[in-house]
């Protein structure tokens, strides 16, 4: 990598590739999910993620008192009759709000990731496949968007358009896109010089078929890693924005918002903060471990590795 960098741009892409773009293994084919589950990270990550997701999906059904008041006072002690983990300063049951507060986060996170993946993968693959000036222009534009951190970008958008759900999803998805495009592009560049792509061209396979049948299956590894990472970051950003008070607005039940509302009382009623903090931590750790196991599965040649 560094040894055969002939220009600074090569160096840059080599630098980011080494960490982020695993080489797709070319040897014995074992289904991807089996390779993922063969990793310790894969098993742990999947379990944690599933637990949190199931909790957020089913939670609201179990304890449907998320936004209404159930107590008349601020109950700081856990295991009180007002709720397993007490109430917040408005007397709302912490456990109920906790169980209800994860769904939006997960849904927004997934939507933003999907948006970013679709847009980014298409741009990246096209840039690499078409090449030439198109590639150069696309990558320069990418650099411009990369110059502003995603969170600052989101804040800029919220200033203009207001703190609404679709704004969060769109701006986070679209700011993921150039980053994903970079990975998709370099993964594609790694594959595009392969002779089987040239062979498909030689047999005059329609270009969309070349992209879909010959290219895409060979970059699913790096793309899946990227999807896992981007999901982790999406959840992080959306939770952060909620925490900043710029996501869901009160009186909605939402983990980030809960942390913001209850953090003043951290020392007397820690559960209102700690439950959502732990949940967000577990969720992001779970998805990140999954992303890591995708990377290992992509690079590994067999189940044992």
């Amino acid at each position: 990598m560094s040894t055969d960098a002939n220009s600074l741009d090569d160096l840059k892409s080599a630098a980011t590739d080494a960490a982020e773009v695993p080489k797709e293994s070319q040897t014995t084919y074992v289904p991807f999910y089996k390779r993922v589950l063969a990793q310790k990270q894969g098993k742990i990550g999947l379990t944690i993620t599933l637990v949190i997701v199931v909790l957020s999906l089913c939670g609201p059904l179990l304890l449907p008192w998320a936004t209404g008041n159930t107590a008349t006072e601020f109950v700081t002690k856990p295991f009180s009759p007002y709720g397993l983990f007490g109430s917040d300063n408005l007397g709302r049951d912490v456990l109920s709000r906790f169980l209800a507060g994860g769904l939006t986060l997960i849904v927004y996170g997934v939507l933003a990731t999907v948006l970013g993946m679709v847009v980014g993968a298409i741009i990246g693959m096209l840039a690499a496949y078409v090449g030439g000036r198109f590639d150069a222009v696309i990558m320069r534009l990418n650099d411009v968007i990369l110059a502003i951190p995603q969170l600052v970008f989101a804040l800029l958008a919220i200033t203009v358009l207001g703190p609404q759900g679709w704004v969060l999803v769109t701006v986070i998805g679209l700011t993921h896109a150039p980053r994903i495009a970079r990975v998709a592009r370099s993964a594609t560049l790694g594959v595009i010089t392969e002779d089987y792509i040239k062979a498909a061209e030689m047999y005059a396979m329609p270009r969309w078929k070349v992209l879909l049948r010959e290219l895409l299956p060979n970059i699913t590894g790096p793309l899946s890693v990227e999807a896992g990472l981007r999901l982790t970051y999406s959840i992080g950003y959306i939770a952060s924005l909620s925490f900043l008070g710029l996501g869901l607005q009160p009186p909605a039940a939402d983990w980030g918002l809960m942390i913001n509302e209850n953090r003043i009382a951290l020392s007397i009623q820690p559960w209102g903060v700690l439950l959502p903090v732990i949940a967000i931590a577990l969720l992001t750790i779970g998805t990140n471990l999954l992303a890591d196991s995708f990377a290992r599965a992509t690079a590994s040649t067999s189940v044992e590795a």
């Binding site: 992080g236 939770a239 952060s240 931590a281």
Partner: peptide, 11 residues
């Protein structure tokens, strides 16, 4: 490093 890289900074 996987654990710390995953969590948002406010967490």
């Amino acid at each position: 490093s996987l654990v710390f890289a995953a969590m948002p900074e406010f967490v």
